[in-house]
């Protein structure tokens, strides 16, 4: 019973945070709603015994990624309210909502119509193909055994990926050829 209550509260926070991201006109509020949503997801991870992922979810997502978002918002000074009442591309909203409704029907239909037993259990597949979860060990030991055993090459590849992303970010925002670029910057009306 406790887990039902925890799921309900965390699920509500996740969905409310998600809606807050989409519906807020101020990007800073969107980012803070995103934090709430991430925390809800972390609670759901704890509920499913994925303790390490819950921790990483908070540290990496709610910590690093959202701080990066806020940093960029503040750096660019775009933390002003965006007028959401104008719809520059006519039919964009209605089209987006229709596409979203279609996607939702598709997903929930697949979930509830495919059910084997009790009508709504869509999870099929062979159990424990790669590595069963050893309940006697901590979650992080289970994850580490799989990560550094079967997936060690992929893990190395992510190190390369992060290096490439860092170098790419530096190259993209480096102010090379500033003379050429600054011509059409605002505040340089003298040109």
């Amino acid at each position: 019973m406790v887990d039902v209550i925890v799921f309900a509260v965390a699920g509500l926070i996740v969905l409310a945070g998600g809606l807050g991201v989409v519906l807020n006109s101020n990007p800073v509020r969107s980012a803070l709603s995103l934090v709430a949503s991430f925390f809800g997801v972390a609670v759901l991870f704890v509920l499913q015994e994925a303790h390490f992922l819950a921790l990483v979810q908070i540290v990496v997502y709610a910590g690093a990624i959202v701080v990066l978002f806020l940093f960029v918002i503040m750096l660019l000074g775009v933390d002003e309210v965006e007028d959401l009442s104008i719809e520059p591309l006519s039919g964009q909203r209605i089209g987006g909502l229709l596409a979203g409704a279609a996607l939702l029907v598709f997903l929930l239909g697949g979930l509830f119509l495919s059910g084997g037993d009790e009508g709504a259990v869509a999870v099929t597949g062979t159990e424990s193909v790669t590595q069963p979860i050893d309940e006697t060990q901590p979650n992080i030991d289970n994850l580490a055994t799989d990560l550094f055993g079967r997936n060690v090459l992929a893990f190395e590849a992510t190190a390369l990926l992060l290096t490439i992303a860092t170098v790419g970010a530096v190259v993209l925002v480096r102010n090379a050829g500033a003379e050429d670029l600054s011509v059409d910057e605002p505040g340089r009306a003298d040109h």
Partner: peptide
């Protein structure tokens, strides 16, 4: 994570 739990397989995590 839900699939990892249901199918008892750490690969989902």
């Amino acid at each position: 994570v839900a699939f990892a739990n249901k199918l008892d397989d750490i690969a989902g995590q």
